[in-house]
Design a protein around this nucleic acid. Sequence first.
DNA 1: ACGGTTTTGACAACCGTTTTCATTTGCACG
DNA 2: CGTGCAAATGAAAACGGTTGTCAAAACCGT
Lengths: 136, 136
Amino acid sequence: MSNRRDAVHEILRQSEGFRSAQDVYAEMRAEGAKIGLTTVYRALQALADSGHVDTLRTDDGESVYRACASGDHHHHLVCRRCGRTVEVAGPAVERWAEAVGSEHGFTGITHTVEVFGTCASCSSAAAKPAGVPSRA
Amino acid sequence: MSNRRDAVHEILRQSEGFRSAQDVYAEMRAEGAKIGLTTVYRALQALADSGHVDTLRTDDGESVYRACASGDHHHHLVCRRCGRTVEVAGPAVERWAEAVGSEHGFTGITHTVEVFGTCASCSSAAAKPAGVPSRA
DNA sequence: ACGGTTTTGACAACCGTTTTCATTTGCACG
DNA sequence: CGTGCAAATGAAAACGGTTGTCAAAACCGT
């Protein structure tokens, strides 16, 4: 039954970058899976809660998810064109955040860091129409 | 006429941390201002576009705005308890983002960095439940 | 005052997400 | 095998923030 959840997880595993809930739902339906939007949302939330996937908000307020290679703390370098994502570690940033926080008397520091850019292949294809990765 | 816009800006100026659009709208109405929600949104967008205010998304997808002291690029250290916000500069982070990006062949690097924590007064209030907000 | 343009704001449309709730499924036990 | 029950599912409705629509109001130069 929580077969659905694994299925959702699988979709994310096969994806390069971040996917939205609706996106995942659409793909599953397209593949013939019998699943409801509600369940996709629930699965995604469960996976996020259990730390199996990473989640972040796009600028337009949509939640996007991604199966991460490691459960360790890390950040993302996302191609704003094709959505390809690279996981990056940033010890320097961690330290900086911690330092800047305590410097101002803040405790229990957490932080969100996302880096966006245009990846090599996308920037070289810049003159062309642009691929259609998942969303754009 | 863009009197409304200035009014909205003023509300943000008087605020300590980030405010949501609806929040600003509610306050303005409470103060007796004749303004519509639509206009508040438009003013906020205009201010954000012109760089007069900073904007970010809360975890629940709401957009929040804040009048920033400087138009320069900077980040925020936000108290997750009371919302108090400190603007912080992070040359190290800027460099790191740039480096990590080009390292992977990405161009046109941008980034979002937000640091959250509990500020001194809030954490001391939390540690000592029954009031007695002594040491800072 | 007058036409043309911009701004405004009540209201409806949107859209992603969450809730509701009746139904189905899985499972332990008799 | 049934039976009962709790968890999972999903269709549809509810939600809530944001955006679009469009007619009325405010401006502005003349």
